Amino acid sequence: MKEFLMIFRSEINDKFGPAPEQTVHNIQEWMDWMGGIAAQGKMTGGSRLSFEGKTLKPNNVIADGPYAEVKEIIGGTIIVKATDLDEAMKLAEGCPILAHGGNVEVRSIIPVNS
């Protein structure tokens, strides 16, 4: 089995502020989808990312915010195990972000030999 990184992207929405019950529903959708992958023994980890951050650029220039020059944000990632990219893409189907106009980028992970 190989490992694949799923990167969850969506457009920046300054007006985003769902009602508490919608937030609970959204969280449950994510938990159900990731729980289905975990139940297959194919999820190895993941994390949600905050909107706060900085970017280090060449010559030690530090820019506020990781998304200063783009219209999309990365909201989080998970790592899954699959036999190939096609299987990893199948696991990405049903991701809740797709229903809200976002996308899932799936990339194979190249192990670093120590």
Rank of each mutant, 00 (worst) to 15 (best):
M1Q: 12
M1K: 10
E3Y: 10
M6W: 13
F8Y: 11
F8G: 03
R9L: 13
E11D: 02
I12C: 07
N13E: 14
D14I: 15
D14A: 15
D14N: 10
K15P: 00
K15E: 15
F16Y: 12
G17D: 04
P20M: 03
E21I: 00
E21Q: 10
E21T: 05
T23C: 01
H25A: 14
H25I: 03
I27P: 00
I27E: 07
Q28K: 04
E29H: 03
W30Q: 05
M34Y: 09
M34C: 05
M34L: 10
M34F: 08
G36D: 07
A38P: 00
A39F: 06
A39R: 09
G41K: 02
G41V: 06
G41E: 09
G41T: 05
K42Y: 09
K42R: 12
G45I: 08
G45D: 04
G46I: 07
G46K: 07
R48C: 00
L49T: 08
S50L: 10
F51K: 04
E52Q: 06
K54Y: 13
K54E: 14
T55M: 11
T55V: 14
T55P: 08
L56K: 11
L56Q: 11
P58W: 02
N59I: 11
N59Q: 15
I62M: 09
D64I: 00
G65I: 02
P66D: 13
P66L: 12
A68N: 05
A68P: 03
A68M: 06
E69M: 05
K71V: 08
E72G: 07
E72Y: 07
G75N: 05
G75E: 04
G75R: 00
G76W: 02
T77K: 08
I79H: 07
V80K: 04
K81Q: 15
D84T: 10
D84R: 01
L85P: 04
E87C: 11
A88G: 06
A88K: 02
M89T: 12
M89E: 05
L91H: 03
L91C: 06
A92P: 05
E93C: 11
C95E: 09
C95K: 10
C95T: 05
P96T: 01
I97A: 12
I97D: 13
A99F: 06
A99D: 09
H100F: 08
H100E: 05
G101Q: 02
G101K: 02
G101N: 02
G101H: 01
N103V: 00
E105I: 02
V106I: 06
R107S: 12
R107D: 10
R107G: 11
I109A: 08
I110S: 13
V112G: 14
V112M: 15
V112I: 12
N113W: 15
N113L: 15
S114G: 15
